[in-house]
Simulated scan of single mutants.
Amino acid sequence: MSPSTDVASFHTYLSSARRIVALCGAGLSASSGLPTFRGAGGMWRNYDVMRLATPEAFKRDPGLVWQFYSMRRHMALQVTPNKAHYALAELARKHPAFLTLTQNVDGLSVRANHPNDSIRYLHGSLFALRCSGYLCDYVDDQNFADPIVPSLAVPMAKKTVEQRAPGPASGQSDGGTPTEETLVYDESVELQALQLSDLPVCPKCQQNILRPGVVWFGENLDLDMMDGIEHWLEQPADLCIVIGTSGLVYPAAGYAHRVKELGGKVAIVDLDVSSGGWSSNIFDWVFEGDATKIVPEILKPLIGDM
């Protein structure tokens, strides 16, 4: 049987669901205007993220890696949470058994005031900091300083933008309005060769530099967090809502399959469901389109109008 696109039938099931889990990916934040790292400025287009987001890269050139993550932090702070982030946060406040599992590291769920006890950041956060030393346990889960230290300031340049008002009838410019200055990434600035003394130092041990609190390629997800998710899922969920994730990354994708296998139902919200790696028979509902419009609408019975 093909999955349904009927919002009314989803609303009926949602209203009776006792345990709900949301699985979120990059599509949740797409409408906030957050670009991928290759949109982070021309200076990064010649770099392979696989060579930057690794423990080996950080050991080899921590200054380069920190400049990359400082750019990503800065970009994330230039956008705001969208209505889908706020809808999930509101559901977390109103539903006693709701858990969000997000693969996003952009900090937008935090800034949407999503209750921390009902969300798990599978891949960490750009705005978390950890000591890079093995013997120090320092962690700062929410550091939104921009820049963290002066040497990591993102290069910006002023750009003059002409603001033209439309003509009275045709919609064409009248050519007479003034210009204004705005800040843009300065792609002409070369990356600096930073020293260890230029990078943020752990305030606890005062010996090691801090590192971004994200999960790099080759690293394991946080075991305590994973155990907590397993414990939450011991009581089967009635509903899994997949939002903007391809189903190609595990263990995240496996949670939706588990809900389905244990008798629950699965819905997906995505711009293009067919482009992912999901099996065709996992979904009971498919809602294709912009998450910022669809998520508040399908959650309306529990969160009201937003």
Rank of each mutant, 00 (worst) to 15 (best):
R93D: 12
Q67L: 01
V266L: 06
S279N: 08
F58Q: 00
S246W: 13
R258S: 11
V259C: 07
G42F: 04
K265Y: 10
N220E: 12
K94Q: 03
V161L: 11
P178R: 02
A89S: 11
G254L: 11
S280E: 15
Q142P: 08
F144E: 02
F144S: 13
D284A: 08
V21D: 00
S275H: 05
H231L: 13
V139A: 12
G254N: 05
N46M: 12
L108E: 01
L77D: 03
Y69T: 11
Y13V: 13
D186Q: 14
F287D: 04
C202T: 12
V7H: 12
S151Y: 13
D305G: 09
P203Y: 04
Q235N: 14
Y250C: 13
V79S: 00
V273R: 15
L221W: 08
F287A: 10
M156F: 15
N116S: 14
G167C: 03
G277I: 07
E90I: 02
T80I: 09
A237P: 05
V21L: 07
D238M: 01
G263K: 00
F287M: 09
G304S: 12
D270Q: 07
I20A: 09
S188H: 14
E90Q: 09
E90N: 10
D198G: 12
G304L: 11
A128M: 14
Y138G: 00
S70W: 06
Q142L: 07
F68D: 00
P212Q: 01
A252N: 01
D305L: 06
H95P: 13
G254I: 07
S188E: 15
N46C: 09
N116L: 14
L302F: 05
C205A: 07
V286H: 09
M1R: 12
V105T: 07
E162M: 08
V49A: 05
G289W: 03
G176K: 07
N113T: 02
A153M: 10
P168R: 06
P55E: 01
E234Y: 04
V139E: 12
V105W: 08
E187L: 07
E56A: 06
Y47P: 12
Q235H: 15
S32G: 04
A87Q: 03
S188K: 15
A8Y: 13
V79R: 02
A26S: 11
I282T: 06
V154N: 02
L88C: 04
S132R: 08
A145Q: 08
E234N: 03
K94A: 08
V49T: 02
L64A: 09
Y185R: 10
T80F: 04
S151F: 11
A252M: 03
F37E: 09
G175L: 10
D48Y: 04
F58H: 02
Q78P: 02
M50S: 11
P155W: 13
G124M: 01
D224S: 15
T182Y: 13
M306S: 08
P3N: 09
G171N: 08
V161F: 05
F217K: 08
P296H: 02
A57Y: 06
L77Y: 05
M226W: 12
R51M: 05
E219W: 05
V242H: 03
G107P: 05
P203E: 06
A112E: 10
A8W: 06
E288N: 00
N220S: 14
V269H: 04
P150I: 11
A97I: 06
P178C: 12
D290E: 04
L135A: 06
D106F: 03
C131W: 11
L196R: 09
S16D: 08
L210T: 03
T80S: 14
V149M: 03
A252I: 02
